[in-house]
Design a protein around this nucleic acid. Structure first.
Lengths: 207, 207
DNA sequence: AAAAAATTTGGACATTGTCCAAATTCGTAT
DNA sequence: ATACGAATTTGGACAATGTCCAAATTTTTT
C-alpha cells in the first residue's frame, strides 16, 4: 500500500513550519522526500492544494477539540483554548502566512468564513451559558459577548504571529502560557467570584 | 532636478498596498513608472532595500506622531493611537507581511526591536503618568502596565491583518473605529471615573 | 501473462528577484 | 559653447520559483 501522499503532507508541514510556506520550495520538498517535483504535483496539482490539505487537517483537529470540552464553564472553555493553541502550533506555518493565504487562496476564504462564524457562535453561546451558570456577571451596560469575542478572536488568530515577531527567543511553553494568560485577562473583568476561581485554577494548572 | 527615487517609493507603496509586497513585482512596478527594472535597482539594489525605505518612513511618521500628543491623559494617548493607526494604514503593506519581513529581513529585526522597546517604554511611562494623574486606578493586585501593554501591542500590530481577514468588506473608517474601541476596552477596567470620561469623550469623537 | 490503471520521471515553460556591461543623459569646468 | 566625467538608464543575462505534460515505469486487475 502506497502512502506517498501522507509522506508528502508530513514533510511539507515540517518544511513549511520551519521556513514558511512561501520560502519552502517544491524542489526542496521533493529532495527531502527523494522524489521528483512532478511526483508531488501528481498528488497536489498546485502548492495551494497542498496548503489547502493542511488547512483542512487543522480545521478537523479544532472541530474535534471543540467537542471534548465543557464550554459552559470558564475552566472548560480555557482548557479548550489551550488544546486549540497546541493544534495551531502544529500547523503554525498557516498562521505565519494568514494574510497571504486569505488574499491569494480564493477557495479557502469561503471555507474559513464558515469556520470563523462557527467559532464566534460557539464562543457567543459559551458566554451566554457562562452567564446563566454564574461564571460571568450580568451587565446591562456593555455588550459583553461582542467585546470578549472581538478580543479573544484577535489573540487566538495572531498569537503565533506576534510570538514570532516578539518572543522568538522564548520557549513554546512560555509563549503559549503568556497568550493563554491574555485570553484569561479578557474574561477577568466580567467574571464573578466563581468565574475568577475557575480562571485562577486554570492559570495555576498551566504553569 | 531628478526625483526618480521618490517616484519609485511612492508607486511601490501604491502597488504593494494593493497587491501585497510579495505579489507586486519589480517588473510590474517598473512598467507603472515607465522605466526598466534595472533602473529601480540603481536606487534600491534589492526589493528588501525598497521595503526598508518604507519601514524607515513609517518609523519616522510614528516618531513624529508620538511627539504631538499629551501622553499623560487617556484622551491624549488614545488620540495618539488614532493617528498612528492612520500612519500604519498608509503603509499597510508592511503589516500585511509583518511575519515575513521579520523572518527574512535580517537587518530590520534589530531596528524593529529598538522601536518596539521604545514604544513599550512609552506606553509604560504613559500608564504610570495616568495613574499619577488619576486616570487609571492604583491596583496592587495586578500588574496593570504589563497587561495593558501586552494587549494593546497585539492590537496595534495586528489590527490591519485581522481587518483584511475578517473585515475586508468594511470601510477603513469603520475598521479603525472598531479597533480603537478595542484599545479603549483594554483601559476601561482600570480607568477611574475621570479616565472613563476621557474614554467616552474620545469614542464619541471618533464616531 | 497480458492489459489497464496508477505512479513516477525528466524536462519544458513563464515568471520572479538580482546583476552588470554598455549606452545615454546630465552637470560642470574650461 | 564644448568637452569631459559622473550620474542615470537600458537591455539582456542568470538562477530559482511554481506549474505543466508526454513518456517511462511500476503496480494492480483481468
Amino acid at each position: 500500500m502506497k502512502n506517498t501522499k501522507e509522506l508528502i503532507v508530513q514533510k511539507a508541514l515540517e518544511l513549511f513550519n520551519e521556513k514558511g510556506i512561501e520560502y519552502g520550495g517544491m524542489r526542496e520538498l521533493a529532495a527531502l522526500l527523494n522524489m521528483r517535483v512532478g511526483n508531488i504535483t501528481y498528488y497536489f496539482a498546485t502548492k495551494d492544494d497542498l496548503v489547502g490539505e493542511l488547512m483542512n487537517r487543522l480545521a478537523e483537529a479544532n472541530t474535534n477539540t471543540a467537542k471534548n470540552y465543557d464550554l459552559a464553564s470558564l475552566k472548560g472553555l480555557l482548557k479548550m483554548y489551550r488544546e486549540m493553541f497546541h493544534n495551531q502550533y502544529i500547523y503554525k506555518c498557516l498562521f505565519m502566512s494568514l494574510v497571504h493565504l486569505f488574499t491569494h487562496h480564493k477557495g479557502l476564504v469561503e471555507q474559513y468564513k464558515i469556520t470563523e462564524k462557527k467559532r464566534k457562535q460557539r464562543l457567543a453561546d459559551a458566554c451566554k451559558a457562562m452567564i446563566d451558570n454564574g461564571y460571568l456577571k450580568q451587565d446591562a451596560d456593555y455588550n459583553i459577548n461582542g467585546k470578549i469575542i472581538a478580543h479573544v478572536s484577535l489573540i487566538a488568530r495572531f498569537w503565533i504571529s506576534e510570538s514570532i515577531v516578539s518572543y522568538y527567543d522564548k520557549s513554546t511553553e512560555y509563549v503559549m502560557c503568556h497568550y493563554l494568560n491574555l485570553i484569561s485577562d479578557e474574561f477577568l473583568p466580567y467574571a464573578t467570584s466563581k468565574g475568577k476561581k475557575d480562571i485562577e485554577a486554570f492559570l495555576t494548572e498551566i504553569t
